[in-house]
Amino acid sequence: MSIIEPHAVSFSRRHLLTCEGLSAGEITSLLDLADKAADLNRQVNKKRDILRGRTLINLFFEASTRTQASFELAGKRLGADVMNMNVSTSSVQKGETLIDTAMTLNAMRPDMIVVRHHAAGAVELLAQKVDCSVINAGDGAHEHPTQALLDALTIRRAKGRVGGLTVAICGDILHSRVARSNIYVLNALGARVRLVAPSTLLPTGIERLGAEVFTDMWKGLEDADIVMMLRLQRERMQGSYVPSTREYYHFFGLDQEKLSRARPDALIMHPGPMNRGVEIASAIADHSRSVIRDQVEMGVAVRMAVLEALARKLPNH
């Protein structure tokens, strides 16, 4: 049983590697599919059989709890056999290259591989070497497509639309694949994107991706509909990019005072895992307008939608 009629799906790619270049139509069709999945996920019987007989491999070269669990659940709810492979960086450095790993897995004849890797472009490289569908679950500072899609779904369900909204993405833009994917998706759907960060955490030319840049968070949050916080890695807090955690929190941590600059009905988002007291005040994370937990729920739904859309392109469907 399919969640939605096949003709309604206008997403017809073999892989999901980037959000750059996705059209509003493609994104909307995935979000529509995910909407239905989200409703079904709230029922007692969540199991579908769209991927029955299919094998999904979760190949994670970088530690992840929520993304991996989310894909695993999504795959199982659609009836796939799911295998988790956690390849620690050290064992890869011992010899086997990414391409060797790809060829080995390919020989096991999976239908879909979900990949996370610490190097930008690694997932695309792997996709060139295998015969199955590949989903990018985060590659270096490049992209994290399903995160941006689940963010868009969360916004759309809470606000009824994405187009016309002002979204402020705040924090470590430089190292963030979440920010890049979000910029593409939000722009495609007609939102206004703002980026808020100290200059040391902003990559060169980022404004050309379609965003307005602010180094003053108070100004950047002015009348924002959505405040999307990013995680600041611990190793980047101690003087290399920002002087200290304390100083970062003062200027770029989301607290009640800065939040008051945004619209009164502004939503608070975070891709997780959060550093409470670094980029976000604990009380704000648990605020009534925080949709951080909804994001996790929508994560499973969006991944089900992506798996289903890609399954339609698999041979013998």
């Binding site: 590659d139 992209e143 890049r180 060169t204 050309r208 991706l209």
Partner: peptide, 15 residues
């Protein structure tokens, strides 16, 4: 090279 291309590819650039 640093710039829009490197930023889009998520690669660290050198000015």
């Amino acid at each position: 090279n640093s710039g829009e291309r490197a930023t889009r590819l998520g690669l660290p650039g050198v000015h």
